[in-house]
Amino acid sequence: MAETCPLEPRPVAGNAPELVRALAAGGLPVDDLTEPGRCFFAYRSQGEPTGFGGFERHGEHVLLLSIVVPEARRGEGLGGAILAHLIAEAGGAGAIWLLTTSAAPFFARHGFRAVPRAEAPAAILATRQAAAICPASATLMTRNPEP
């Protein structure tokens, strides 16, 4: 994995066309982007687009939303850098949660572990992502906050 240049994050609205296009192109959900409580970022490095990511808070817990990096930029460590920024930005004392159908190995490399859905707090299970958007076959993963 190559060294990455510092990311330049900027907040972006859930209905921003570039966010919707990037997620759709990556095969990621776009049905709930404008629901309240979501926080999305567009990322650039050296002036070039490097991806998008987001999260939503539920009390002390955080649900990570889709992270997407342009296919031509994959393998440069950008996904990990975006993930690190989202975790730092989200803060919180509780665990960080996510659902994935295809990226479990990526998240496992970054300290997440797969858990049964019954281990998630009710607030996470009640999200539209957990309750309706992600299939029951999606892997639920979690990571405790940094000490």
Results as ranks from 00 to 15, higher is better:
A2R: 15
T4D: 10
T4L: 13
C5Y: 12
P6H: 06
P9E: 03
G14E: 06
G14C: 08
L19A: 08
R21L: 11
A22M: 14
G26D: 14
G27N: 10
L28R: 11
V30F: 07
V30C: 13
V30P: 04
P36C: 07
C39Q: 11
F40N: 02
Y43A: 02
S45G: 15
P49I: 11
G54P: 01
R57G: 08
E60S: 13
H61S: 08
V62C: 08
V62R: 00
V62E: 00
L64T: 01
L64M: 09
L65Q: 04
S66K: 04
S66H: 07
V68C: 09
V68A: 12
V69W: 03
E71I: 15
A72I: 15
R74Y: 12
G80N: 09
H85N: 13
H85C: 10
L86T: 11
A93V: 15
A93D: 12
G94P: 01
A95M: 09
W97C: 01
L99Q: 03
T100H: 12
T100R: 06
T101I: 11
S102I: 11
A104D: 10
F107T: 02
H110P: 07
F112Y: 07
F112P: 00
R113P: 00
R117F: 04
E119I: 05
A123T: 07
I124F: 00
A126R: 09
R128K: 14
S137P: 06
M141A: 03
N144R: 14
P145I: 06
